[in-house]
Amino acid sequence: MKVLHILTSLNPIAGGVAKAVDLAVCALDSVGFASEVVCFDEPEASFLRSKHYEVYALGPANNMYSYTENFKEWARVHLRNYDHIILHGLWQYSSYGGYLFWRKYASTSSLWVMPHGMLDPYFQKAKDRRLKAIRNWFFWKFLERQVVNNSNGLLFTCLDELKLARTTFKPYNPKSEIVVGLGIDSPISYSYSLSEAFKSTIPALNERPYFLFLGRVDSKKGVDLLVKAYRSLRVKHADIPDLVIAGPGLESAYGQQVLSDAAGDDRIHFPGMLQGAAKWGALYGAQNFILPSHQENFGIAVVEALACGTPVLISKQVNIWREIIKEEAGIAEADTLEGTINLLERWLNFSEEQRRLKKDNASKAYRQYFTTNAFGENLRVLFNK
C-alpha cells in the first residue's frame, strides 16, 4: 500500500511537524507501507537532500497561507495513486487544499488528518496570539471544519491531545478519533565522539555538568521561565549545573528578551541549533532535559531524551506528562515560574540514587510507549481495516 503525507514544510527549523512526518515515514516503512511526501518548499531547498523517501516539493509558497498554484496540477495527475492520504497540520493551504483535491481526484482513497496539537485551546487563548486566534476562528467556520468533519478521521499522538481537541471549536464532529501515538527509532549508540561534538559547540562548558533545553526559543516553550528560575536558584545552590539552551529563534524579539534575561550569567549557554552528533551528545550527557512549555502536543525532543536515558523535567502542558510520571522517568509541574523553580529544586534535592533510578526509568518509558514499532503497528492496523 502507498501512503501520501501532505504538509506545508519539511524545514526542521519550522518545528515538530516536519520531524513527525519523518517519523511517520519510518514507522510505516517498518510495517511494509511505502510513503511519499508532498511539501510546499522550494525543490532546491538544502534540507530536502538528506531525505530517504520520495519528496515532491511544489513551492515556493511565499505567502502567509502557504499557497502554491503547483499543488492543484500535481494533485490532478498523481493523487489517485495513493491508498491513504494523511494531512499533517491545519490552518494552511496544505490542509484545505489537500481536502478539496482529495474530494475531486481521489475520493476512493482514505483521508486522515493528523493535527499535531493545532486544535489545542491554548492557541485560541494565548494573549500573544489574539490576531491568529481570530483568523483561526474564520478559517474554522469557512474551511477547516470541513477538513476535520468530512475526512475519515483524526489521528492523535496521545489521549490528552484528543481530549483537548474536543474543546476548542464547534461544530466538531469528526467521523473517528484515533490515538496512534508517535515514536522514534532508537538513537545512535553513545560514543565519546558524540560528547566531543557537543562540547566543541560550547568550549566554556569544559567538563561541568549541565541541564539541557533543546528546541525553538519561543514564548510557547517557556524559555523565559527557565532562565528566571535558574538564576533565582543560583543564589541558593552555588554548585547548580550549567544551563544549556540550544535551538533556533534567538534572533526573534522573544529570543532577544531571553538573551537579555540571561545577560551576565556565564553559566547559561546558547549554542544555537544542534544537529547530528552534537545534538545526540548533548542529550546523552545532560543531567536532565527541561521543557517548561505552555503547550506541547507531544514533545519529540522529550522522547529523544528518554531514549538516551536522560530524565525529563517538564510542565503538565506537555501532553505526554502522565506516561512519564507513571513510569517515574521525570518530574512534572505547572507551566509557571513557581512550577519551573519546583522542577529544578526537586531535582537538586534528589539523592544520587534517586537520579540514577530516574535515568533507568527514562529508557524504560521510551521502550514502553514511544518506539517506532508501536507507532507503525498502530497505523498498520488502522489502514488494514
Results as ranks from 00 to 15, higher is better:
Tyr192Ile: 14
Ile188Val: 13
Phe213Ile: 02
Val217Leu: 05
Glu207Ala: 11
Ser195Gly: 14
Ser191Trp: 02
Ser189Leu: 13
Ser189Ile: 08
Ser219Leu: 02
Ile184Met: 08
Val179Tyr: 08
Pro203Ile: 09
Asp185Trp: 10
Leu214Ser: 13
Lys220Pro: 05
Tyr230Val: 03
Pro187Glu: 06
Leu182Ala: 13
Ser200Met: 03
Lys220Val: 14
Lys220Cys: 11
Ala229Tyr: 03
Lys228His: 00
Gly215Met: 14
Ser200Phe: 02
Phe211Asn: 07
Asp185Ile: 00
Ser176Gln: 11
Ile188Tyr: 00
Leu212Glu: 03
Ile178Glu: 11
Ser219Lys: 14
Ala204Asn: 07
Tyr190Ile: 10
Pro187Asp: 10
Gly183Trp: 12
Val223Gly: 04
Phe211Pro: 06
Ile184Asp: 08
Ile188Glu: 10
Leu212Trp: 12
Gly183Thr: 08
Asp224Phe: 02
Phe213Val: 02
Leu225Asn: 00
Phe198Val: 11
Ala197Asn: 09
Pro203Asp: 10
Ile178Tyr: 06
Ile184Thr: 15
Leu214Gly: 08
Tyr192Ser: 15
Ile202Asp: 05
Pro209Met: 09
Leu182Ser: 14
Ser189Pro: 11
Leu182Gln: 14
Ser191Ile: 03
Val227Glu: 03
Ser195Trp: 07
Ser176Phe: 04
Ser191Phe: 03
Leu226Asn: 09
Leu205Pro: 10
Leu194Glu: 01
Glu196Tyr: 08
Leu212Pro: 12
Ser193His: 12
Ala204Leu: 11
Glu177Val: 09
